[in-house]
Amino acid sequence: MKTGTIKQILLITDGCSNQGEDPSHVATLIAEQGITVNVIGVLEDDQREQPVGLQEVEEIASCGQGISQIVYPQALSQTVQTVTKQAMSETLQGVVNKELKQILGEKQTIEELPPEQRGEIMEVVDDLGETSDLEVLVLVDTSASMTSKLPTVQEALMDLSVSMNARMGRSRFAVYQFPGRKESIHSLIDWTSQIDSISTIFSKLSSSGITPTGPALKEAMYEFAKPSLRRRSHTDDSPDIEEA
């Protein structure tokens, strides 16, 4: 079974968008391109209740057919991984469900099978999760209130690359921050398999009050189609499988 490369955008933010088009609307369009949008909302250490701004998080992810999670900074590493892995698995289950429907008829999904058969199918899903190629574009909100959390974000991303590189399949990451100085997003790390610890990846930005989440997501979507990513995929020894 061919699954192609699994593509995800991972949005890490601590607040509400306030400029440009509605991020949920953009997420819907992105999902249509076969890219899932996962969102992690980061709380302040002393925040007890979920702030209103973070309600948007759930909506963006559900429109982007991805997963959302709201966490305190110290749980970020584990959460980034859980969200990425779970979203991969759900994408793959979607692919498998589609195949099942072709074989067994419209109404059949994994969850409706008896436990024994479900086990066999999950083995296939697990195999695919281990061997599929993965591309994650990480989009980090670097507006003023996020500044203190950025070292933790960097550590979580390094940790994510450690985990994903332990898989058999190829994993590649790109990191962008938003808002950029002039553009809506600013590239920090171009597509790479390893996010290392050598330098601080988040450059100091003039902190403005704007959070253009929608435009940033849209720009991120185009990055997936950029030739730099495609070219590099072809020069690597494993072929790039596009069709599902």
Binding site: M122, V125, D126
Partner: peptide, 8 residues
Amino acid sequence: HSLTSEVN
């Protein structure tokens, strides 16, 4: 899904 993997 995760639980089914454990069962396997």
